[in-house]
């Protein structure tokens, strides 16, 4: 041990200090409890992620009745698979067609369908994406290596605390008769935000 405490004591960043200050007070006052906080972190780090959404999309592709239930009431249809939102938000699915491509943004903050996609990627929360997805969606898509025919209409959906969107990408060709499980492997996170397309069978086997 050194003589000088200044050199070997522990240090936190200002952010760590701020969080620990709030956390310790909120725990002491009983507004939150440690076990619940641990479950929340564990859930979002490991359990909830875009595989949930991929199952929803694959089922929608494979089962017309399920697709209809998604159109009628997406929150309930998604809850059928065990994925429920914790913030009381409503879900809506937006379906890509050969004529229309859908893309999701939250211009104000970072509203995102957590229950089916997990937490948003860094770029989704960035200022450039939040503004440019609306002002120049085609250019943003090209930066994601997505090029669409000139006459494809691009529809941008702005999420709110109350309404979150899940894009149903176009089902790739050459997947007739595939199981939902196999189809789900074609569904990427970005394809459900609209900044990507579903993978082709070649891309997954490659």
């Amino acid at each position: 041990m050194g003589q000088n405490h200044d050199h070997d004591h522990s240090e936190w960043s200002d952010m760590e200090l701020k969080v620990k200050t709030l956390e310790s007070l909120l725990l002491e006052k009983g507004y939150v409890d440690q076990a619940a906080l641990d479950v929340i972190v564990e859930t979002y780090e490991h359990k909830v992620g875009p595989r949930n959404g991929a199952q929803v999309v694959a089922k929608a592709w494979a089962d017309p009745n399920y697709l209809q239930r998604l159109r009628d009431d997406a929150s309930s249809a998604i809850a059928e698979l065990g994925f429920t939102g914790r913030q009381g938000e409503h879900m809506r699915v937006v379906e890509n067609t050969p004529d229309t491509h859908n893309m999701v943004v939250c211009t104000l903050c970072s509203c995102y369908p957590w229950s089916v996609l997990g937490l948003p990627p860094v770029w989704y929360k960035s200022a450039p994406y939040r503004s440019r997805a609306v002002s120049e969606p085609r250019k943003v898509l090209s930066e994601f290596d997505v090029s669409l025919p000139e006459d494809t209409n691009i529809q941008v959906w702005d999420s709110t605390a109350e309404m979150r969107y899940l894009v149903i990408p176009l089902r790739p060709e050459g997947t007739d008769g595939w199981s939902e499980e196999k189809l789900a492997d074609l569904v990427t996170r970005d394809s459900m935000i609209g900044t990507g397309l579903a993978l082709s069978p070649d891309e997954v086997s490659a």
């Binding site: 952010m15 969080v19 956390e23 906080l37 972190v41 979002y44 780090e45 937490l119």
Partner: peptide, 8 residues
Amino acid sequence: WEANAFAL
């Protein structure tokens, strides 16, 4: 700390 702030 980001996870802590999120969970709170």
